[in-house]
């Protein structure tokens, strides 16, 4: 294994981590903006989405270069394959966070007490944990932690379904139609961030265990 190849793999890991941290900041910041109705914060974070987009292109180029020049196999190849997918998923997560920010900017403020009544505090807390844990599992190569991220996704899906039903009710949470539409879009985007964190966790399991657990294709094995 050449020193150059080792350096390139380290660079790929570093870039994925940089991208992950940025997306984590974006997601957490947008959630804070939502809960506190801070439109300035939302606007500021929307502008930062470009940084994630640029990193995605850099990661993809690096992965392509490593394949062409070093022909990686086994765990090295899995890192490249996971790298391609993770950069795509992280970029999408950045977009979903941006979408949340756009709604916060345009939405008539809903007070935090009402958001909590809607269980949005629970949903956002799960989503934040999923994003953080998915990235941590990548840093530590921890497949068990990654699996727990996949399990959390069910909770997020449940809250999403509950809110969809509630928004459909005429007097659901005593919100205006406009607020309901904005919140519906926000909830959908939160749910997607959860899905994408799950994708990343599945990539980590693929990377560490060489197992494909998505779509129930293979069983997760603790050992």
């Amino acid at each position: 294994m050449t020193k150059r190849f080792v350096r390139e793999l380290e660079r790929l890991r570093d870039m994925l981590l940089e991208m992950g941290s940025l997306v984590e900041e974006q997601t957490n910041g947008m959630i804070q903006a939502l809960m506190t109705g801070d439109k300035d914060l939302a606007e500021k974070l929307i502008k930062r989405d470009k940084e994630v987009d640029e990193l995605e292109i850099q990661v993809d180029q690096l992965c392509e270069e490593i394949i062409a020049l070093s022909q990686p196999v086994a765990s090295d190849l899995r890192l490249i394959v996971a790298g391609f997918k993770m950069s795509n998923d992280l970029e999408r997560m950045g977009d979903q966070a941006k979408n949340i920010g756009v709604q916060v900017v345009h939405m008539e403020r809903v007070n935090e007490q009402m958001l909590k009544k809607m269980r949005l505090d629970v949903m956002t807390s799960f989503v934040k944990d999923m994003v953080t844990d998915a990235l941590d599992s990548f840093v530590h190569g921890d497949a068990t932690q990654a699996k727990s991220v996949c399990d959390m996704d069910d909770e997020v899906d449940n809250i999403n379904l509950y809110l969809m039903k509630k928004f459909g009710e005429e007097n659901g949470f005593w919100l205006t139609m406009s607020q309901k539409i904005h919140l519906l879009i926000i909830v959908q985007n939160l749910e997607r961030i959860g899905d994408l964190a799950t994708n990343i966790a599945e990539d980590v399991i693929f990377l560490v265990k060489a197992k494909v657990i998505k779509h129930g294709y293979e069983e997760f094995d603790e050992s």
Partner: peptide, 17 residues
């Protein structure tokens, strides 16, 4: 063998370590 070797030394060899 080239995607998911069982033995660590196989992994080390095929990845050039």
């Amino acid at each position: 063998l080239f995607t998911n070797p069982i033995v660590q030394s196989t992994q080390d060899y095929i990845t050039g370590r």
